[in-house]
Amino acid sequence: MLTVKFKHLDLKPGQRVLDLGCGEGRHVHGFHMVDGINVVGVDIDEPSLAKAREGIEYLDRQSSDTYPTGDTSFMQASAYELPFEDDCFDVVICSEVLEHLDNYPAAILEMRRVLKPGGKLGITVPHGWPERMCWRLAPPPGGYPFEPGGHIRIFDDTALKYELVNAGFTFQRKHHTHGLHSPYWWLKCALWDQRDTHWLIKLYHNFLVWDLMKKPILTRFLDAITSPIMGKSVALYFEANEK
């Protein structure tokens, strides 16, 4: 399930891509299947990186004779201090990460530092009003926004856009995505103490997995019409300016 749309990144063979906060590697796995793309997945959590590496090994076992790939690697590092030289990536993505960071402006500056002038940036964060519903449905002292490592802020996407413009990027486009996922998270938040056991949550989860695997026309249509209104995430795309 990809939140960043690769078609907006202007990918070309031989390019170097950074996935900052790659987690278990869902976007890295997608880049791995694009011909000639060299991708580095960076995350602070080593267990997540281990799962991401396992995913690459699985893809290579299943499809190594079907598609050519570039180089794919993973690295444990902080978003605030990336171990890369200036202007060394053609594309940077950061998907569902900034809402977890205490000092997200520092991470934005690091992304600008390592991205070449003219390079593409894809940022995704939770969409404001569906996220506020989650916070209200699972209030303190426990609940959705108060889990260790959880979301510590709700972004206004317009304000975030101008923060990135002020950091040296030119805005290009945005879209909302995962319209069918917001009700799932509202259910989990409303039933937080049973979020892993309640039958209705399990049923909805199974539906989402089925939809992801089968991609039937009806649910693709429903997702397309609900995403602009209640998509779980908003994606913003930029180009890096000359320094």
Rank of each mutant, 00 (worst) to 15 (best):
F6L: 15
L9I: 06
L11E: 07
P13R: 08
G14T: 10
G14K: 13
R16I: 01
D19A: 11
G21F: 01
G23W: 03
G23V: 03
R26M: 03
R26W: 01
H27Q: 11
F31R: 06
H32R: 14
M33P: 02
V34G: 04
V39I: 11
S48L: 14
G55E: 02
E57V: 13
Y58R: 15
S63A: 14
S64M: 07
D65C: 11
D65R: 13
Y67T: 14
T69K: 14
T72C: 10
A79M: 02
E81P: 03
F84R: 07
C88I: 05
C88R: 06
F89W: 07
V91Q: 01
V91K: 02
V91G: 05
I93Y: 10
C94P: 00
S95N: 08
E96W: 01
E96I: 03
V97G: 01
L98Y: 00
H100E: 03
D102S: 14
A106I: 05
A106V: 10
A107E: 00
I108M: 09
E110D: 00
M111P: 02
R112D: 10
R113D: 07
V114M: 12
L115H: 12
L121V: 01
T124P: 00
T124D: 03
P126F: 07
H127D: 13
H127A: 13
W129M: 13
P130R: 04
E131S: 06
E131H: 15
A138S: 15
G143M: 05
Y144D: 12
G149D: 07
G150Q: 06
H151P: 07
R153S: 08
F155Q: 05
A159R: 13
L160M: 11
L160W: 11
L160F: 10
Y162H: 15
E163P: 04
E163W: 05
V165D: 00
A167F: 03
A167D: 02
T170K: 11
T170Y: 03
H178K: 14
G179I: 05
S182Q: 06
S182G: 05
W185N: 11
W186M: 13
W192V: 02
R195K: 14
D196Q: 13
H198K: 07
W199T: 09
L200Q: 10
Y204F: 09
Y204H: 05
H205T: 04
N206I: 02
L208W: 10
D211S: 11
L212D: 14
M213V: 13
K214A: 12
P216C: 11
F221N: 00
L222K: 04
L222H: 05
A224C: 03
A224K: 08
I225E: 01
I225R: 04
S227V: 02
S227T: 06
I229R: 13
M230P: 02
M230I: 15
G231V: 00
G231S: 02
Y237M: 01
N241H: 09
E242H: 12
E242L: 12
